[in-house]
Design a protein around this nucleic acid. Structure first.
Length: 600
RNA sequence: GGGGGCGUAGCUCAAUUGGUUAGAGUACCGGACUGUCGAUCCGGUGGUUGCGGGUUCGACCCCCGUCGCCCUCGCCA
């Protein structure tokens, strides 16, 4: 390899040059983002990953080299060129303040066309106009734009910071199999047919869950992996068929060990990757407390407006909707939107009513607090002292808007929890530049599946119950708590984990309660259950969604915006056109056939 | 699997109640121009209105089917 640079190769990037380089001769390589012709004077905006630099070709230099001038006249968007030129400081009135390189320009001395571009299907600018479908089809063009480049660079910076942090804290980066075994519970698996084991299939991992637990049994003590996970379920703006997790597991730990470690890691990663300072400590809520105060298990802590229980007050109310709901075993809760009375017209409140009825509530009771007392749908039941009592209970002052839902607990929490977010959004309390994290602990261990008519795991089969010595899972099942925890930022669930069951007898008991036969246990998790027979340490861990964290930190719309090559909502890659057909020979070799009707 | 939205020039969009030759901006091509930076000015090319069928004298528009993209509920232990 020659140590010398070819004449066309860049000496600087398109983000490097400033007035301090005045007079130097240098070479830039890049894509033509824009060109402006003025007859005998041509401007080119040359772009690379690092920035945009204006190149000037005029008669003074270009005229002396007519060939170059004629070449430049033919150049167009996205042509790749090399320009040798001299850095010139611009006159004060010609400085472009919107660019870091705006104080200078490169006066072209010679130019080489490295690659000519056809007219692109859309204009490659920061302010994109093309729709996402087209942008995904030509993803390599979309990726030339600054917003995408920034997302990928910051994502890499974040992940690197996480790796450094974990390395320093004695975690070992361990790769686990991509070709693994299908398990019936949980999400649908992506399957891979085996050629050498005809009729058998690998599954792509939904997460490295079982393998990381085996790492603990193996005594590796602290494991991590930036792991790709695969789930064949219907997609959303925040879900892709393949996504990335920071997967971790630690031995000989309790909840606070994991939470403290992850909290410091997230703070470090957000600071290094995005320059975001997270306020600490992250509040830790019991699941039941989160449900009571926020009506959901992933509270958005950027604003208060907590749910206030008014059941006792409502019980003695003349308002039949309130008293009646309580009489039927329901509850009444309200939120107080501070200073919002004037911001919601009658029509605006009607829209909120429609919103909550769509969530199962029967209606929305409301009150505007004025200097004279209570106005609104419940006003006549809360005159005088009763109104004062209500305001005191809700912490309401004149100018505030109160909103109430009365129903069964589940309905109230769902409706009012979602309403809180909606009202918070309308009042601009959910600032995308503000970041508030929290932990939610002690989730229910089981949930009842109405369809299947049986209890099932709320989290995963290996989460330990809060009470190690629980005698009988069939007693008071819905109130049994697991040592599972979620990490939440701005109302997004970004991570989920638990302290695991490390004792085979307890694991067997859990499976037994859920009616998983010994045979099924063996088929699905036999090797894991065996492993614990040989001495499993107490351990626990977590997995954090990288795509979601980056999306949130950068204030993007969805995770497609932070993934280099994403898929559509139907799990299709518009660029690669994957999945695609395979040849009959390939199918034959795998001894499989398709029952699908051919669609083009 | 269910619900909603969208699909018209390379791109972003418009087109009255179903009615003349489907328009505009931008991109592209040609011309003018030595200080632009979303350059400007003049001219031009460019259409299977996603696809298939139907109703009608007449369909971008209405109906049926289908494909694609987006959002969402179910789903995602």
């Amino acid at each position: 390899m020659s140590k010398t640079r070819s004449s066309w190769q860049r000496t600087h990037t398109c983000g490097d040059l400033s007035s301090s380089n005045e007079g130097t001769e240098c070479v830039l390589n890049g894509w033509i983002e824009n060109h402006r012709h003025h007859g005998q004077l041509i401007f080119l905006d040359l772009r690379d990953r690092y920035g945009v630099t204006q190149v000037v070709v005029d008669q003074e230099t270009g005229g002396a080299l007519l060939g170059m001038f004629e070449t430049v006249k033919r150049l167009g968007a996205e042509d790749v060129i090399s320009v040798r030129g001299r850095v010139r400081r611009r006159d004060a009135d010609k400085i472009n303040k919107n660019r870091s390189t705006g104080e200078i320009e490169l006066v072209a001395l010679s130019l080489t066309v490295l690659s000519e571009a056809e007219t692109p299907p859309f204009e490659v600018h920061d302010k994109i106009e093309a729709n996402e479908e087209l942008r995904m089809q030509y993803r390599y063009l979309d990726l030339r734009r600054r917003p995408l480049q920034e997302a990928l660079q910051k994502r890499a910076k974040f992940v690197t910071a996480i790796r450094n942090y974990l390395q320093q804290n004695r975690f070992i980066d361990i790769e686990t199999p991509i070709l693994t075994k299908s398990t019936p519970e949980g999400a649908r698996d992506y399957l891979v047919p085996s050629r050498v084991h005809p009729g058998k299939f690998f599954a792509l991992p939904q997460s490295p869950q079982i393998f990381k637990q085996l790492c603990m049994v193996a005594g590796l003590d602290r494991y991590y992996q930036i792991a790709r996970c695969f789930r064949d379920e219907d997609l959303r703006a925040d879900r892709q068929p393949e996504f990335t997790q920071i997967d971790m597991e630690m031995s000989f730990v309790e909840e606070h060990d994991v939470l403290d470690m992850v909290e410091s890691m997230v703070v470090h990663g957000m600071r290094e990757g995005f320059g975001i300072e997270l306020p600490q400590p992250f509040p830790r809520f019991d699941y039941s407390e989160a449900m009571d105060k926020y009506g959901c298990d992933k509270p958005d802590l950027r604003f208060a407006m907590t749910l206030i229980d008014c059941t006792a007050l409502a019980q003695k109310s003349d308002f039949k909707v309130f008293a009646g709901a309580v009489a039927q075993g329901g509850i009444v809760k309200g939120i107080c939107a501070t200073g919002a009375a004037e911001k919601f017209s009658r029509k605006g409140i009607d829209e909120l009513t429609t919103f909550v009825t769509g969530l199962g509530a029967k209606g929305l009771a409301w009150a505007k607090i004025t200097a004279n007392g209570v106005e609104g749908s419940i006003a006549k039941f809360y005159e005088g002292d009763k109104g004062k009592e209500l305001c005191a209970h809700m912490g309401a002052l004149p100018g505030d808007l109160l909103l109430f839902v009365a129903d069964q607990k589940r309905v109230v929490n769902k409706a009012l929890g979602d309403l809180r977010l909606k009202v918070g959004g309308i009042l601009s309390l959910r600032d995308p530049k503000v970041f508030r994290c929290c932990w939610v602990l002690n989730f229910p261990m089981f949930e009842y599946n109405e369809e299947k008519g049986r209890w099932q795991f709320a989290h995963n089969p290996f989460s330990a119950p809060v009470d190690w010595d629980v005698k009988d899972f069939s007693v008071d099942t819905e109130n049994i708590r697991s040592r599972a925890y979620d990490f939440v930022m701005n109302g997004w669930e970004l991570g989920s984990g638990s302290i695991r069951i490390h004792r085979p007898d307890l694991q067997a008991k859990v499976f037994e309660f859920l009616g998983v036969s010994k045979e099924q246990q063996r088929i699905n998790f036999g090797f894991l259950l065996d492993a614990y027979k040989y001495g499993g340490p107490p351990h626990g861990g977590i997995a954090l969604g990288v795509d979601r964290i980056v999306t949130l930190a950068l204030g993007r719309e969805g995770i497609r915006d932070v993934i280099a090559f994403p898929k559509t909502a139907t799990a299709f890659d518009l660029m690669a056109e994957a999945p695609g057909m395979v040849s009959a020979e390939q199918m034959a070799e795998l001894q499989i056939s398709s029952t699908a009707k051919p669609t083009s």
